[in-house]
Design a protein around this nucleic acid. Structure first.
Lengths: 192, 192
DNA sequence: GGGGTTTTGAAGCAACTGCTCCGAAACATG
DNA sequence: CATGTTTCGGAGCAGTTGCTTCAAAACCCC
């Protein structure tokens, strides 16, 4: 019917995601995106719409590839507190891994764009809610097994862990002392 | 000796701070800064150097005017846990106050700029360290008065509260349910 | 292999970016 | 009041921004 694309859409989307993730929305130019994906500007606009739409696609792509990866730590077998610790320590090590570490894209988006962009806010809300739901289920499991006191509701405890978890990732942007941050993880887990 | 300035430097700095705070570094142009401060571009550059220097000045100004204001909640008399709750609830209400709320400038700067700008990272680290120190002192006071168990060190507990506090402010960017967020505050305080 | 449709790369648009230059204005000092 | 020094407003610089245009190219289907 027509000339076929000679690029892989998912591959291009991954490159765009990494660029937005590393540099943020405003600091990324459409030339940067063109360079990162290897596509010409017209191909980019033809395939993904404008910069704003591409950013949203990149955010959703992050959700599909990275958020599920995070919550997967929680679904593994074993003591619930170890699962929670794994989740946080894994993120911590990612955030401390050299100068290329760029934190959590969802958190970055929430801070840089959510206040000015309803679509971004809604998308990030979805990311946060998914992690919160996974935490709630995990903690409820711990309560059923007797590992965690049922005194406070699983939902409340999950939000508490979520806050600590996200705060930890903010602190890791400037505080590179792994032991100090590990202390927070231990403290958060043992407070359950 | 020469022609005197007809603007107040602190006043201009406040206007620049609010602009950077609300829109971030990259999204703020030097024209925006010129409009917000009421100064011509040449006056801005003459008084504050380039955009990067002005941003740092704005961050330091935030530290002087807002970080101390936060920690002041902790120095008041009364039960320590109430002081901690006050700190967090106050920030929460600021973050939920209408569409003009723009969170904590230090957190915003840490997420948007710290990874790419050593000066910003160092400055934000100072902000975080100051709040952490204030929290440590407050919690130590609570431990001396018997209000808080001395089982875990004040430093560890302070970092734990700091994480929860900052995570809360990130969540508040997209999650506007005050009661849910208040639950986190209560949970964090009662976990001490 | 010709017709119809889409993709591609390059050039280019007006608006905006951070920053500078410069003549005129405004003052303290002699 | 003349002088020296600084500030001021506005124009303007080269480079970049997000996005578009367009002819040439590439393919599927008949």
């Amino acid at each position: 019917m027509a000339r076929p694309r000679k690029f892989d859409e998912t591959h291009a989307l991954t490159a765009a995601m990494e660029t937005f993730w590393r540099r943020g929305y405003e600091a990324t130019s459409t030339r940067d995106l063109s360079d990162a994906t290897g596509l010409g500007q017209s191909s980019l606009y033809n395939a993904f719409g404008d910069k704003h739409e591409l950013y949203l696609r990149a955010l959703r792509h992050y959700y599909e590839t990275h958020t599920a990866e995070q919550t997967a730590f929680l679904d593994r077998p074993g003591p619930v507190k170890e699962r929670l610790r794994d989740l946080m320590v894994h993120a911590l090590d990612a955030d401390l891994a050299g100068p290329d570490a760029c934190g959590c894209f969802s958190i970055n988006a929430s801070v840089e764009r959510a206040h000015a962009d309803d679509d971004v806010r809604e998308e990030v809300r979805r990311h946060f809610a998914t992690v919160e739901r996974a935490l709630t289920e995990t903690i409820a499991r711990g309560q059923r097994s007797g590992e965690i006191s049922p005194q406070r509701s699983a939902a409340t405890l999950a939000r508490q862990v979520l806050s600590t978890y996200y705060g930890l990732r903010v602190l890791a942007r400037v505080q590179k002392d792994r032991n100090a941050l590990l202390g927070v993880v231990e403290s958060a887990v043992s407070a359950l």
